[in-house]
Design a protein around this nucleic acid. Structure first.
Lengths: 143, 143
DNA sequence: ATATTATCGGATATTTTTATCCTTTAATAT
DNA sequence: ATATTAAAGGATAAAAATATCCGATAATAT
């Protein structure tokens, strides 16, 4: 469904969102420990998220990553789009280059509803939402 | 969603199912031309499908691949399971090793409905169903 | 029996994804 | 100013997925 890079991205973004907003930033080491991901690879992914303005970072002592107010409204959809592209939302399930209503693959219509279901859910799910479950101990980021 | 191998497998199985049942077998070359897939790689995938009894094959002149009566009832679900495993049906969307009701990842419940929707559809969709759309020109296997 | 045909299966190559290493850059603190 | 800290970014390595090649095997036809 999602690439590993994307899974790390989502879990990392959620973890950062669980931390209190303010001057506190969280470092790469803590993040990758919290979500059980390879440090250097995670760094690459966070770089992309910073470049795309889904995440902000600061170098030096007390540096690290943070997400402020507005950023916590980021949709799950957006994170996936930035890391994996929107293949999963718009690409053909069977790999046809030009799959469409006019030239549908063998499962086009069968997948249509599922696509809409998936997109809809991911459009309406935000970091805030997901962070809540982690904060109150209902959901988990690792193991 | 699916690996390329799996997409080739599905399209190939559908193509073979569109052909009239009987003594007629279809060769690798024709199959990979019909679904626009690399020949040698497609051969590997067909081998797996044969080994798993989703497809039958015969060597030598007039050899090739075929699917008889019962085989045409094969569920889409089964093809995916054989080629990609059931990661997509049961695996955690965020990669947690032990994601479950008791230890759910951050999106466990959000994905639950989608998983069921997807599994249900793929359980009830058969080769026969999909072949119909190709036979009557509504759906396509390539481009 | 022998030649021909087409899948099977092992070995290998290429590409993509995942992962690591190390130098550079920028921020802070002394 | 200087040392320290942590992210940024380039280079490279390892693993997995995709793809190709070719000899072995099995079936048919002559």
């Amino acid at each position: 469904m999602f690439s590993k890079a994307c899974k790390y991205a989502i879990n990392a973004m959620i973890y950062i969102s669980t931390l209190p907003e303010g001057n506190d930033r969280v470092g790469l080491k803590e993040i990758s420990k919290a979500i059980n991901s390879p440090e250097a690879f995670t760094a690459k992914i966070l770089q992309i998220l910073v470049r795309e303005n889904l995440l902000s970072s600061l170098k030096g002592p007390n540096g690290g990553f943070e997400i402020h107010e507005e950023g916590r409204k980021t949709q799950l959809y957006r994170i996936v789009q930035v890391i994996d592209g929107d293949q999963i939302f718009t690409g053909c399930a069977l790999g046809l280059e030009k799959c469409s209503e006019d030239h549908p693959c063998a499962v086009h219509n069968k997948f249509k509803a599922i696509r809409e279901h998936l997109s809809g859910m991911m459009m309406t799910t935000t970091l805030e939402d997901m962070a809540k479950g982690i904060q109150n101990g209902t959901n988990f980021l690792k193991i």
